[in-house]
Design a protein around this nucleic acid. Structure first.
Lengths: 328, 328
DNA sequence: ACAGATATGTCAATCGTTTGACAGAAAATA
DNA sequence: TATTTTCTGTCAAACGATTGACATATCTGT
């Protein structure tokens, strides 16, 4: 049997109330009693039952983190960074991989509510705004506008699009393509395209896009990219909306004997440690993953501390960096 | 205010007991009442408070998953697979990234106990066996012997080592190196080396190793590998104990103008989807991630259902597959 | 010696649910 | 009609903690 508070009290020779007071630092407690109680706790290897504490009104110290697929290195690193911050503050992470499945996301949302989590970090977006508003929980969102009441944290995708494209322009490209996810307008990541489009226009060049589905199989995507390169169109620069696509493009070019960067320059987006370490030649836009995680967590804490408090800002745009490498 | 059981009772015009009976399918309930209760629940958007239920004696339906760094694609895919299985059965996953930090792992272990998780899947191993035994929780282990009482699930690392090395031998290599983690004997992954060593010996060749730390920085590791290749030693085949190392080696060889597979053949280990998709030329040993996850989860369920039951097997060794590609 | 601060204890309510004991009513069966 | 079986309700105790009210005892310092 797991020891309980009364067992500790008995062992320490005091009342349950006193033990609770020690644990919660409440009321007057002499150092001597405090020591005796701690000794008893250690001896019995006592852990307060968090269920009981939370039921009584305390926080659960649990945060629900809803993300699409952590098998994507970017989300894996983001989740790892979030976990790291939360753990330091004694929070636990219920990880919810919602994938592309809105039913699953809905189930998870209900589940998180039933489990009385203190807050939610939402990075997966298969559901409408209303669904998120229904639950009166502190929420912060990554990469998506949910509502005025929900702060949103994103990288400065527009800036990233500009930086990437400008790098291609500066490198002398005259036929710059945008290759990436077919994003709905309004979605923050579509700002990458906007940055691209504006920069291309400012340079007096034309917009060319070859959009491919984010969740498409990589093999099919690779084939598509090879077709693009062999289509006879003039292409000397490509801004890919994510690094994984950029890697596929790089491979396609190599296979076709197209020199990178001589004949074709490439810039990706995301800049995970994984890609930086294992595809170090790829020029890319680096999202500030630790800062993103830090901001998400910090804002969530604020919401938890005071859910009613009006937000100073609704939107937090974090600067990105161009990592100039051999592919540009 | 969140609705509670009594609110549902009131709305449905029946007693709390009846509502509870409906929820728990307990005792006699007419279909009519059942329908009325469900209607009331839906109308109020009622979710039973899992804290209260669990406190009362029900399971928490929470599983602690302790892993080292999910930024490693292998663990990311393993965790994703585990999460997927658990969610189907209504379990939630508390993800604990213990990294290389034994203090953190200890904190997590205590925390999981305090949170009354139903069981633990342990894949991170910074702590001694005793620490795991102290907590009377159902545990299954990935890739490590904890004790007779804890079932262990692993890929057949020995078989993998053999397959990989044999592939190199068959391809005509005469100077085959083992490059990888400096693993302590006894650890399941050291069986990869054993398989390598036995196969090399059987072919009448000599064992050569160049071990490098798993958690070493990739840049340093890459440098080491380049040194290895330029050291003047005769090397025509390398079995890397993980794919990431294999990728670094591949890059080192390319940079040095060493032809792969003409001059140097390489086989890796892990075979994640990510690597298969984005480094498709790499020959590797594929760990059966979905099966590993399935087995871990299934065994954990059995332990939860009956913690006392003697284990049919203590160790589950899952077969691996050689993925023959251009690097061999 | 006495006020006030400090320390500890007892008791009971509370959090939201489950579940057993028991009673009584309605419905089904004999 | 009598007897089961089925349905629903009331009541209360539990789960393991927190916390407020209140009483009492032991220290301070003056």
């Amino acid at each position: 049997m797991r020891p309980k508070l009364t067992d500790v009290a008995e062992k320490a020779g005091c009342s349950p109330t006193t033990v609770s007071r020690v644990i919660n630092n409440y009321g007057y407690i002499s150092q001597k009693t405090r020591d005796r109680v701690y000794a008893a706790m250690r001896e019995l290897n006592y852990q307060p039952n968090t269920l009981a504490r939370s039921l009584q009104g305390k926080q659960t110290k649990m945060i629900g983190v809803i993300m699409p697929s952590i098998t994507n290195p970017f989300f894996a690193e983001l989740v790892a960074a979030i976990e790291d911050k939360l753990e330091v503050d004694g929070y636990k992470m219920l990880l919810c991989d919602a994938g592309q499945d809105s039913e699953k996301e809905r189930r998870y949302l209900r589940m998180l509510e039933a489990n009385q989590v203190d807050g939610i970090i939402a990075g997966s977006h298969n559901l409408g705004i209303e669904e998120y508003q229904r639950y009166g929980l502190p929420i912060v969102s990554f990469d998506r506008d949910l509502s005025d009441q929900v702060p949103i944290v994103t990288s400065d995708n527009y800036q990233g699009g500009c930086l990437a494209t400008q790098a291609l322009v500066d490198a002398g490209c005259g036929h710059i393509y945008f290759v990436g996810n077919p994003v709905k307008t309004g979605h923050p990541t579509s700002r990458r395209f906007d940055g691209y489009a504006d920069t291309v226009a400012a340079a007096g060049l034309t917009v060319h896009t070859a959009r491919s589905a984010f969740y498409e199989l990589p093999a099919a995507k690779g084939r598509e990219l090879r077709e693009l390169l062999t289509s006879g169109r003039k292409i000397d620069g490509v801004f890919c909306s994510d690094d994984l696509t950029a890697i596929l493009l790089l491979k396609a070019a190599k296979k076709l004997g197209i020199g990178v960067p001589e004949d074709l320059k490439i810039v990706g987006f995301d800049g995970t440690q994984l890609v930086q370490n294992y595809v170090p030649e790829l020029a890319t836009i680096v999202q500030p993953i630790p800062d993103l995680a830090g901001t998400l967590v910090k804002l969530l804490y604020e919401r938890i501390a005071d859910p009613e408090k009006k937000l100073a800002q609704n939107s937090y745009l974090l600067p990105v960096k161009l990592l100039r490498n051999q592919t540009v």
